[in-house]
Amino acid sequence: MSTALHTVALTADPEVILAYGELTDDMNPIHIDPVYAASTSMGGCIAHGTMSICLLWESLFRSFSEAEWLRLDLDVRFIKPVRAGETIRAGGEPREGEAGCYTVWVRGDDGADRVTGTVRLLHEEGQA
């Protein structure tokens, strides 16, 4: 595949963040308690970082054949937190000269990166 990945979006509403907290058993008040979160340096609730990774999975798997399970290596950095209520978009582009490798990103309402890094598709031998 030599085209950009499908871009997918998710709004990190408080209900969505709470559901992710239940999924991961992570009920850190920074994610779900607006009063507590307002008292921290974050100034308000933020989404779990790995929720953005799950959105990247949506982008990746929608971009490839339904018949194909993708073994892959992901390596991303968390640049900036996703604020509660923010709409994030995930996507990526193929890396030139690197077969099966993509630059991936999750961006916020302002278009700036929240997460950025690479995904490398693995073949059976474990090599890209």
Partner: peptide, 24 residues
């Protein structure tokens, strides 16, 4: 509940559950 019930059983769901298991 997060990513949509029309995605039930999808590969993305399987990958997402793997990440969730890691965090758990």
């Amino acid at each position: 509940d997060i990513f949509g019930h029309d995605n039930a059983g999808s590969r993305a769901e399987g990958a997402g559950i793997a990440v969730a298991m890691m965090m758990r």
